[in-house]
Computed example of a mutant assay.
Amino acid sequence: MQASELLLTRQSAPRLIAPGPNEQQLDFILNAGARVPDHGALTPWEFILAQGDGLTRLADIFINAAKANNADDAFIEKAAKMPMRAPLVIIVVAKTQHHPKVPVLEQQIAAGCAVMAMQQAAFSIGLGAVWRTGGFAFDANVHQSLGLNEADQIVGFLYVGTPAVKAPIKALKPGRQFSRQI
């Protein structure tokens, strides 16, 4: 796939099934995430992989967080199913640090770029992916269960797998409509 086609036809694939990426494809996806702009070479990200039994462990983390937040039974049931929406979930964490020239926001944006690069990489090799956040990305119970530090922030749950259906390409939103000159 040409880079120009990839950039203009990329879209989320919310219905994902097995198979997920094989080891070579997973390496390609992770390498794409690690290749994003990184001012100061801080590598302000961590990629936590949930696949196989890891999806069940992630579901347990979500269930426990929902219960700790006094969620109703319907939401707890929904939380249990969330990780099962794809054969692989990559939890992307911004691992920020104090730096005199690289503000925390820039480091978080770099981690967000990693999510986008990994989604693009998956798309480029015929897989599908969808970037989700939601309340669990900001939940202290989830952070603690994943062993995150206080300054760490989940910037996305990237669900990766084989698209269950071929979604039609969405109409292009011309970038000029969002631009202005000064």
Rank of each mutant, 00 (worst) to 15 (best):
A66S: 15
L8P: 01
L8A: 03
I169P: 02
P168T: 09
A66T: 07
M116R: 08
T9D: 04
V160Q: 04
T56F: 01
I90W: 03
K67E: 13
F157M: 09
S145W: 02
L88M: 14
L172S: 11
L7Y: 11
T43K: 14
G128N: 06
M82E: 09
V102I: 15
G33T: 11
I91V: 15
F62A: 06
P19G: 03
P174K: 13
V102L: 09
R132G: 13
T56P: 00
M84I: 03
N141K: 11
P163S: 08
D73E: 15
G112R: 05
A65H: 04
L55P: 05
I125Q: 14
N64K: 13
G128Y: 05
L49I: 15
Y159F: 15
P37D: 02
K67V: 12
F178D: 03
I63S: 03
L7K: 01
I76D: 08
Q24D: 10
P100E: 06
A74Y: 05
L55G: 07
L26T: 07
F47I: 12
A71T: 00
W131H: 12
D38C: 10
L105D: 04
E106M: 09
D27A: 12
Q120M: 14
K173V: 13
K170A: 13
A171D: 14
E5G: 01
L172D: 02
H98R: 08
V89L: 04
Q24A: 14
N31M: 03
Q144W: 00
K67C: 03
N22C: 03
L26K: 13
G134T: 07
V115T: 14
A59H: 06
A41E: 09
P44M: 06
G20L: 01
Q119L: 13
F123C: 06
A171W: 00
T56H: 06
G126M: 11
V93A: 00
A114M: 09
Q144H: 11
T9I: 05
L30Q: 00
A41D: 10
A13W: 04
G128W: 05
G134H: 04
V160L: 08
C113L: 10
A34S: 08
G156Y: 11
M82A: 04
R15M: 11
Q181A: 05
G135T: 13
D60I: 00
A13F: 06
L42G: 06
E23M: 03
A74V: 08
R180K: 11
D72T: 01
A137S: 15
R132N: 14
